[in-house]
Design a protein around this nucleic acid. Sequence first.
DNA 1: CCTGACGTTTTC
DNA 2: GAAAACGTCAGG
Length: 444
Amino acid sequence: MTSDPRVAAAAGGETTAVDGWELVRVCFALMANMSSSVCMETPHAHGHTHGHTHNYNPTPGRDFPLQIDSCVNPVLDYSAQMERYRSFATFYKNSTAAAAAAAATPFPQTAKIARIATPLFPSARLSAMPPWPCDNAMLWGRKPTAVNVNGPHTHRTGMSRAEPVNMHMSGKHIPQDSALPMGADNFLSPLAAEQCRGLPVTGAECMNRLKCPPSVPPGGAGEADRSGTFGGMPPLGGLSLPPGVIVMTTLHSGAGSSGVTMSDSAFQIANVAADCQHSGSSCSGSPAALNGNANGSCSSGSSNGSGAAKRKRKRCGVCAPCRRLINCGVCSSCRNRKTGHQICKFRKCEELKKKPGSTMENSHCLLCLPSESAIGGSRRHLPLVLLKNPPQSTSSNWTETLEELQVIHLQSTPRSDHMVPQSGTLTALLAFYPFPSGLTVWPV
DNA sequence: CCTGACGTTTTC
DNA sequence: GAAAACGTCAGG
Ligand SMILES: [Zn+2]
Ligand SMILES: [Zn+2]
C-alpha cells in the first residue's frame, strides 16, 4: 500500500559492480516457496507493507510464473514478525557489543570458504543462549584461488551468463504456498530433520541434532572433503546469526579476484539447501548427484541406492534458440515431431546442446533454487535482506539498524552486481529463512 | 496426456 | 563419426 518513494528509488534497479561477496550461512534451511520476483517491503508501513513490488521479466516473451502475493502477504502478522526480528536483533546487539569489547576484529575480508570451528553464535563465549536453536554455521566467501567445494565439479562453465538485472517492483506478491512452512511461526524455529539433512554441516554440529541425524556417513568422502575445505575462517569477528541467515557482504579487497569462484561457493549453498527442500528426505535430486557426485551432502536416509535420479535440464531461456518462439516446421526435429521427441533444431537451447554435466545449471546464480533457474522453473530464490550497516566488524553496532532492511525477492539471478547499494554504505545482504515476510523494507 | 531431454541403437 | 531414430520418462 505504500508507495514509498524511497522504496521506489531503491527499486530503481541500479546496479553497481562489486568485487565480491562474502556469505555466511548459518544452519541454513530452505526456502520452499520463494518466487522469483523482486519484491520489496518497507518497514515503516506497518500492517500493510505491501505494495510496491515490481516485477520484471528478464526474458521477453516468456513469462515467469507468478510472483504474486507473497512478499507482502498480509497473512503474516507484521507485528509478530517484527517481534521475532527484534528479539534477535537485540540479542545481536548485546552479544556483539560484548564480543566487540573482546576483539574488534574486522570482518574477514580474505574470505575463504571455511568451516566455522566455533559457532558463530556467541553463546559459547557469552554464556547466553541465542534465541534460536541452531548454532552451526558456515562461512562462505569468495576466494581468489579455487576451492574445490564439491569434489569433482570445479569447473562450471558459463558462470556469469549475462542476465539483465531487473529490479523493478510490481504490485504482485510472491506466493507463499508452502511445501515448507514458512510463516511467522517458523521464523526461528528449529529445522526439521529433512531440512537439516543435506546441509553442508555434520549432524553432530547441528543443535538440531536430535532431529537431524548425522548426515555424514562414516568416511563419506564428499562431506569430508567439504569440511576440509573450510578450515580457518574466523567466525565473523564474533558475529552470530540466527539459523537460516545468510550474510553476503561485498568484499572490497580483492581487486583481481574472479567472480566465478564466489558464484561457485554461493551456488553450493543455495543448491545444497534447496536440494533438500526439493527432495524432501532424499538427496536424489541434488546437483551433486546430477554431476555424478552423488551423495552430495545428504544423508543416507532415503536415497534409492543406485542412483541419482537425474534431473532434467531446462533450457536457459536466454540464448537465441530459446528466444525463438516458433518451430521452423521443416527441420528434421520438426518433421519428426511425433517420433523424434526433439525440439525444433532452431529452438534447441545452446546450453542443452552441450553435453550434460559440462555445465552446471544455475552456476551463475547465487541463490537460485536448483532446477529453478531455467525457464520453466519457478525461479525461486532465497530472499535477500539488505543491511544498511553490514557487520563489518564486531565493533560496529550494525544491529541497531537491523530494522532498516531491504528485502528483496529476486527474480533474476542474484549475482554480485545485483543488490548493490546505490549509494555507498550498503554492503551486506542477509537472507533469512523462513523469510519474515512482515519485515519492512528500508531503501538503501 | 504432451513435450522434449536423454541415452542407446541404427543408419548413412 | 555424425545424424537420425527410437525408447524411456521427467515435468508440466
Ligand atoms: Zn524446426
Ligand atoms: Zn537456451
